[in-house]
Each structure stands twice: as C-alpha cells, then as structure tokens.
Design a protein around this nucleic acid. Structure first.
Lengths: 148, 148
DNA sequence: AGACTAATGTTAACTACTTGACAATCTGAT
DNA sequence: ATCAGATTGTCAAGTAGTTAACATTAGTCT
C-alpha cells in the first residue's frame, strides 16, 4: 500500500510539473515541452550525434531521426557532417535555436521559482538529494537482484 | 538551475519506477504497466463509467473507448448497461480480471518492497508527505496566480 | 411538453513514440 | 589487408495517446 502511494504521488507530481511547463511554453513560445527538452538537451552538449541525443532524451534513435526535420525546417537546428566522419551526423543549435532555448529556459525557470517559492516550507535542495538517493538505491538494488 | 534539477530528478525517478514496473508485469503477467493501471483503477471503483475511468487515469474518453475492446476480448472487463440509464456504460472487472489485478498488484507490491527496502535510510512515508505538500502548494500557487 | 444545455461514448485524422530490419560505416583482431 | 562485429541513421509498420466533430441521451428552465 505504501509503495503504491508514493509511486502514484510521484507520477501525479510529475504530471502537474510537465503539463504546467507545456502550457507555459505553448502560450509564450509556441513550443511543446518535449520540443523544449530537445533544444535544451542539445544546447548542453558540444555537437552531439543524433544517437547520443536520443540516449540523453531517453528515446529511440528513430524518434530523434524523425523529429530532426521539424527543427531544421524552422531553422532551429543545423545538421551537418564532419569531414572524415561519414558515419555520424553532427547536430548544432542555430543562433535562432540557441536564443529560443535560452529565453524559454530562463522564462520557465522564473515562472517555476514563483510557483515553488510561495511561502514554501519545503527544502527543495534537500528533497532533490533525497530523491536522487532513492533513485540510486533502487537501481543498485535492481542490479544486485539481477546478479543473484 | 535549482528548479530544473529537481524536475529532472523527478522525471528520472518516475521513469525508473514505471519502466521497472512495466518490465516486471510483462515478464510475469503478460501485462503492460498501463494495462495494469487500467485494471487496478477499475478495481478500486464501484461500476464506474468509461468517462469517470478516463478522468481517474488522466487520459481522454476516446482513449478509454478505444482500449475497452482489448479488455473485453480477453474477458477481463465486462461492459454493460444499467436499465433506465441509456447514457452511461457500466464497467466491471470479470472474475478473471479481478484475479489478475489482485495477483499482479500483490506481486508488484512485494517486488517494490524489496527494491525500496534494501537498507534504506530514507523515510518513504515522510517523503510521500513532502511530495504531496509540494504538489498541493504548486497547484495552489498556480490558482492564485491565475486568479490575479 | 418543449427547448436549450451539458455530458457521454464513438469515430476519424493526427502525433509521437516504439520495434525490427536494413544498408552504410567504422573498429579491431588476426 | 581483410573481415567479423558493432554502431549509426533511416524506413516501415504498429501502438497508444491526442483533439475535433458527431449523434445520442439526460437534465433544467419556462
């Protein structure tokens, strides 16, 4: 009963957070949350390949491949080949893409700070550490269970 | 920076939890996590309508409508009409459906208890309360912000 | 009773993912 | 040098959701 409650609570909280972010981004930047994640993930990397981006986003290579043209058409992402490497594509934000990613991230950051901080009695830093610990522990327990 | 870290941590944790549940359920009951949720949500209610079930699951009425035949074909859910009510369908788990829901829920509960409890130094009850508090506060702050 | 209004369940068209197969390319062992 | 094996990016087919539109039914107001 315990387990289910906390997994449900987590799912509900994530749903509230993600759908709020999605709503804010659509209204202010004509961007979905998942498009936003695509851009900011790309921004945090130095000319990654589609394959690596897929891994970072937690989706399949096919999914990234299919979405790339959308970002290219809007001149947000530039796809190129590095000479001497015929295997990998190189992805890079355009100036426009970088501006959009930066502005929307700043905006979202600001909005969420307001939503989180309204007389908050919760220590978010500490909560983050606790959640990370739970995640790490879960993965460790899974591995030792699989090994056995 | 703070905000993003905790939302990412939450998303990662939920991903680990849900994909673990999905893997366990597929291996042991030939059931996806979302099919499992469909059944246990249905079990917790007294002859709900598709519309109400959709609300509980957080999906559209169309999604429930499309999935119903899958459960009917496998004799897990019975769809009927209550006389005197031509508008609403009535949903109910069959015996087989109830058995499957109960057994898979018990199984998952047990597995997760093992994964969570391996020398855990985290108070999960407390964590659940904290998360609920954060969620409630977020929603409240959103409402008061929208009202202004 | 009749007429708005709201809610329900279904359908069609769309979106975003998945897996599996594939050709092309790179890597490393011999 | 070559050749087996792994990795990459793409395509086709399938899945699970979405929104919008619709007919039908129920509730309410006069």
């Amino acid at each position: 009963m315990n387990r289910s409650r906390i997994t449900f609570t987590l799912n509900e909280l994530v749903y509230v957070l993600n759908s709020t972010a999605d709503r804010l981004l659509r209204a202010n930047f004509e961007l979905t949350y998942s498009q936003f994640l695509f851009l900011v993930t790309l921004m945090s990397q130095d000319k990654p390949t589609p394959s690596y981006l897929a891994e970072c986003l937690g989706v399949s290579r096919a999914a990234v491949s299919q979405r790339l043209s959308w970002f290219q058409e809007r001149n947000l992402v530039q796809v190129s080949r590095v000479s001497g490497n015929e295997k990998n594509l190189s992805l890079e934000l355009t100036q426009k893409g970088e501006l959009l990613a930066t502005q929307s991230a700043d905006f979202l950051e600001k909005e969420f700070r307001i939503l989180f901080d309204g007389g908050s009695s919760v220590d978010l830093e500490k909560l983050d550490r606790t959640l990370t610990q739970v995640k790490t522990q879960l993965i460790q327990n899974m591995e030792s269970r699989n090994a056995a």
